[in-house]
């Protein structure tokens, strides 16, 4: 399957891929758009936070007969309870007040108290980053990574490379390049979210926020692996960038439905089949990635990597037999 220097070739292809992406206007535009959307949504999130503060403050003011806690007022002790802002800016601690709707959202995401206890001590902007990354990174991957091999087929540029290295090395280099790109973009998006939060939140602390980002960013990267695998599977077995992107988006939809099916057809006689198929969908492992301990997160992360390997392997199985 591999030539005498597979790692060198994979590295060469990945490096070339990254250099080409760096120079490609289209790729830069997509990445810039993703980062802009991430920044904008982070800004909206902070504004929502501000609105939530108003909602929470008013009843307090009504009960106490005051205008609510002012600057330098009492703060909660030893936990992320509601704390007043030193200025007009909202507080990130607000999110975890008992009345916060964000807490309700989290409660829907997590199923156990240990995880909930872990999450409520994390900076909310980091949780927001994890949540939105889980939602949007698959789409980013399908748009950017799906065309990488297919484009080479469309232009027949693959023919310059095909005589110089094995097909597996070529594809794995492309996959590695795309994986590194996703890692870089998601890290930048995280830093951007933190910057937006620091600019807008009164009690934002960079230290805990960065450490939380470093805790969650690897989870986002690993979560992206099977999606990169799916995109490459589609890319390997289509003949144009357009068809690769379309098939990758369809594949994404199919994986999402695969994950929804067990709940939708819980009473059906096919429920065991749907439950088994669910293991093939990366969405099935998403909830596990919210857990606090690495030993709890490790298994789903390994399974996600394995799923990525399976997708790429299936793609390669057919790709090695196709005409270039």
């Amino acid at each position: 399957m591999f030539g005498p220097t597979p790692c060198r070739d994979i590295g060469l292809v990945a490096g070339f891929e990254l250099r080409e992406m760096r120079r490609s206007r289209r790729a830069l535009a997509v990445v810039a758009l993703y980062l802009m959307v991430a920044a904008f949504l982070a800004f909206v999130f902070v504004r929502v936070l501000e609105q939530a503060q108003t909602v929470v403050n008013n009843p307090v003011a009504l009960m106490t007969g005051t205008n609510g806690p002012g600057p330098g007022g009492p703060r909660g002790r030893g936990g992320p309870v509601f704390a007043p802002s030193p200025a007009d800016k909202p507080s990130q601690g607000l999110l975890f007040s008992r009345r916060s709707p964000f807490r309700a959202v989290l409660r829907n995401q997590v199923s156990d108290d240990a995880t909930m206890d872990f999450l409520v001590v994390q900076p909310p902007i980091s949780l927001y980053y994890l949540l939105t990354s889980f939602m949007f990174v698959p789409f980013l991957i399908m748009i950017t990574a799906a065309e990488t091999v297919a484009q080479e087929h469309q232009t027949r540029g693959v023919r310059f490379v095909a005589m110089r290295t094995g097909r597996a090395e070529f594809v794995l280099g492309k996959v590695l390049g795309q994986g590194l790109l996703v890692a870089l973009v998601t890290l930048l998006a995280g830093l951007m979210c933190l910057a937006i939060a620091a600019w807008n939140l009164a009690d934002f602390a960079w230290g805990p926020a960065l450490s939380s980002l470093l805790l969650f960013w690897p989870r986002v990267v690993v979560y992206a692996v099977p999606f990169v695998g799916l995109a490459s599977l589609c890319s390997m077995n289509t003949s144009s960038a357009m068809s690769a992107r379309a098939s990758a988006l369809l594949g994404l939809g199919a994986l999402w439905l695969t994950h929804q099916a067990p709940a939708l057809y819980a009473d059906s006689s096919l429920a065991p089949v749907f439950n088994a198929l669910d293991y093939l969908s990366p969405y099935a492992y998403q909830d596990e990635l919210w857990r606090p301990l690495w030993n709890e997160v490790g298994t789903p992360m390994l399974l996600l990597v394995w799923l990525g390997v399976v997708y790429v392997g299936v793609g390669l199985f057919f790709y090695r037999r196709r005409d270039l």
């Binding site: 030539g3 005498p4 070339f16 080409e20 027949r156 540029g157 023919r159 005589m163 094995g166 090395e169």
Partner: peptide, 28 residues
């Protein structure tokens, strides 16, 4: 028949209508 392991570095080709990557320099 062509096999990357056997023939890499020994055979090259100028394919018809195949395009080189557009965003890197000639030397790259």
């Amino acid at each position: 028949p062509f096999d990357a392991e056997q023939h890499r570095g020994r055979i090259t080709a100028l394919p018809q209508d195949a395009a080189l990557g557009r965003d890197l320099t000639v030397a790259e």
